[in-house]
Nucleic acid binder design. Structure first.
Lengths: 245, 245
DNA sequence: CCGCCCATTAATGTCAGACAATTATTACAG
DNA sequence: CTGTAATAATTGTCTGACATTAATGGGCGG
């Protein structure tokens, strides 16, 4: 709970770190109120702007929330799965676009993880999950559906599949892999793909989940993966053809 | 690239959002320099403190970095896997501690994901990965090793296993599951566990990876999972015994 | 002509103080 | 007792200043 004014690191970084560590260590618990900005100024012997920049850093990570008015202040935030998922997907998406992740690498990771859910999913799936999957499959079959909407529905289908494993931790971790790579895959391949083929595979997966047949789910996810990679190949070939001419 | 001054949301949040969207959309690319704080003030018609708070928010997400001096400024940051992994682990850890995640849930998620790596790991493991695993197993066998060091080594072992799948995306996604749940599991069970049993399983896993035997890796990870859950049971029983007396 | 030192300059980092906006509490009037 | 207005506490924003850092260019000496 101290900072080193001689350190070369920015003060607001040090302060944010000090507070973050208290939260991680449990000294500050969920819904605890932090000292007011003025008190933090005194404690760390810095100006209010510096304290505020530190608090904004923490707020950006969803670690705290602030409230104005009397008996307001900064409170330790309960990290919700939804908030965390949003962040996770954003970061994963940027990570992949900025590092020019190989299509095959992303695809491999995504399906490896999704297949890991299959045994749990067939075991725990509820009627709700099945219904969601069926609805999305129906949507995907609608004529006139835009490519963007098809992508969205695709993501929703796979998310329902993952969620049906009934494990929040798993759902959270997979959000990054599935939701961040899916659009990437869609953008690359949607010009070339056959919606019928994908809907057929989705239907087979939903059926297998309903029948609690993990092996078939796994196999069909494998087919989907292979089909996606093949599409990518076709697109690449078409591109080099065009280059030649 | 505009903000709405009549919105109830804080200005610094709106500004951060506007810039974040430009980064996500690719308008601002990696290593691009943002306008200086003064220019951003004029552009958004706000004060410098507000702009700075917005920039700190982005910096907290590793989206930008800042540099002082002439020709300094804020630059779009290339998200590195290491930075992102650190964040991911921190968030996952907090998520699990704050939401009081069931031990079994965490354990289930972690092993399901790790087992998904097995087929890739046996295929792509290098001598380096094997060496790391062997070294960690050796460390784990040292008498007098503290519980904390044993935990660290355990994490390092599993990380080497995951990394040997040779897929950066996979390694990143799994960091959250493995590195965040492992300490939780260790804290709960390390009083009761037998290091010999764990070292034996680790050795079997390393051997199987070396022999490219995915099924055995999978089986041994399953045993490790079962053993961990059994330990947890023992601890729980011992606790209720103590309560009775 | 080359290299070193230094002033300049442009940028972020920090500070101080003020006012605005918001909200819970308290006091007061009816 | 109730509704309303004053009050106080707190975060949000603005302004202006100075400190710190680092690239740049110019002068000066070799």
């Amino acid at each position: 709970m101290k900072i080193d004014p001689t350190s070369k690191a920015d003060l607001s970084i040090q302060i944010a770190k000090a507070i973050r560590e208290e939260i991680m260590a449990g000294t500050l618990r969920v819904d605890d109120r932090l000292p007011s900005e003025t008190e933090l100024c005194e404690h760390f012997a810095v100006s209010r702007s510096t304290v505020r920049e530190a608090l904004k850093r923490l707020a950006a990570q969803n670690l705290i929330r602030t409230q104005r008015g009397a008996s307001g202040g900064a409170f330790v935030n309960r990290l919700s799965y939804d908030q965390a998922r949003g962040h996770h997907v954003t970061t994963s998406t940027l990570l992949m676009s900025m590092n020019e992740v190989d299509f095959q690498t992303a695809c491999e990771a995504r399906f490896a993880l999704e297949r890991a859910c299959a045994p749990l999913a067939v075991h725990r799936r509820t009627a709700d999950h099945l219904a969601t999957m069926r609805v999305e499959i129906y949507r995907q079959g609608q004529p006139g559906l835009s490519d963007e909407s098809f992508c969205d529905s695709d993501v929703a289908f796979h998310r329902a599949l993952v969620d049906s494993a009934g494990n929040d931790v798993l759902s959270y971790q997979l959000a990054g892999a599935v939701e961040a790579t899916q659009p990437l895959m869609n953008m690359i391949t949607f010009s070339a793909r056959s919606r019928e083929k994908i809907i057929e595979l989705h239907t087979a997966i939903a059926d297998a989940v309903e029948n609690r047949d993990a092996d078939t789910v796994d196999a069909k996810l494998g087919e989907l993966s292979a089909y996606t990679l093949q599409l990518k190949d076709n697109v690449a070939k078409a591109r080099s053809e065009r280059k030649k001419s």
